[in-house]
Write a protein that binds this DNA or RNA. Sequence first.
DNA 1: CGAATATATGAGGGTTTCCTCAGTTTCGGT
DNA 2: ACCGAAACTGAGGAAACCCTCATATATTCG
Lengths: 208, 208
Amino acid sequence: MNRPAPSLLRPRKAPKQARSTATLEAIHTATIQVLLAEGVGRLTTARVAERAGVSIGTMYQYYPHKQALLFAMVERQLETVIGFMLTAAEQLRGQDVGTVAEGLALAWIDAKTPESEAFRALYGVVAEFDLAEGMGQALAQMTEVFSGLLAAAPDAHFADCEAVAFMLAVIIGGTVRMLLDTAASPDNLARLRQELPRACRAYVASAR
Amino acid sequence: MNRPAPSLLRPRKAPKQARSTATLEAIHTATIQVLLAEGVGRLTTARVAERAGVSIGTMYQYYPHKQALLFAMVERQLETVIGFMLTAAEQLRGQDVGTVAEGLALAWIDAKTPESEAFRALYGVVAEFDLAEGMGQALAQMTEVFSGLLAAAPDAHFADCEAVAFMLAVIIGGTVRMLLDTAASPDNLARLRQELPRACRAYVASAR
DNA sequence: CGAATATATGAGGGTTTCCTCAGTTTCGGT
DNA sequence: ACCGAAACTGAGGAAACCCTCATATATTCG
């Protein structure tokens, strides 16, 4: 669709002085701000640079082009969530399937809620470029983790453990995304926190 | 974010001869094709016109600008789904809550699967412009319908019927969207068809 | 047929956007 | 204090894009 060669998406160079790490950070937060204030379609190099308080040329020292910047932002956020989920998974190992399901749902919510605005902004980027594949890979990775966790539960007797894990990942991921995407009210977020874990518990129980 | 006044989003005129309805149709399908082949960011008036086999000026007879065309496409698809769901809801009225939940999940899947490519293409448009609000409204409407349906079930004893209906809508909508968005394999779609209804049934049962 | 209406055309003006590069400023170590 | 490396600047070339308008063709109907 719109995917350049991977090598072209890599950052151009890493910062070596304190000064430049600060600029890079400024660029990143400016990107999110512009994304939220104007949308993907109106995110331009000039606007980001201005809001970051740097010149356009500076941006191009770190990223070969706009896409590379946006791609880096998405990847960064993805890694954050995955890392968060991996540590959460460790703590759930060995628990019964109901608790595992609840715990995973809560972990996912907690991973995304604090920076929900950033996530919302970046969903647009994922849609604009062909980054759905990356999302698919992340989904597959989560499925594997979930599957291992379910299999390790003492009360596990699934006909198709893999399928249940997959469905769990899709339910959790899709549900949370839908709410963040529509900029849900705090009310609805509270509902989510209360109901989603219960739903997940009910699902795995019914599939056992 | 990026939302023009609603009046500017309306089509410019309706077709009065057979010829022009054909052109409009061509423009619409060309839009989807370009969206899928190139992405929202590379969808230009020229590209759409060329693929539709009409001139640029023709497009501007029907839509005052690009946004209006895209907005119309999204609205059209939204209405299709809502209509589909409303008729499905009628047939489920009076059934027990488990069957209702299953039926709604299946109906949603059946509404979106046949034109899954078009939906995938349009998600990008929703993200690019500030159409999440419209999605939110559709979600609210679905919640209301679901809620009425659950309340009418003979075995309904919910603490908070509204909350359950909301959650059901979010689970179904989010899950299906996540799969379509990542261009899921037929395997995974089959899993969805089998597991999502079960998950919904289990959820409402646990919430009763 | 012939007038009135509906529909289609596409070159081009004006604007926006991406990204480069030659030159300047700041930093870190000696 | 001094120098080489790192970081920063921003005007402007080149390309892409949106949309208009004067003109041309097709359709309908009295």
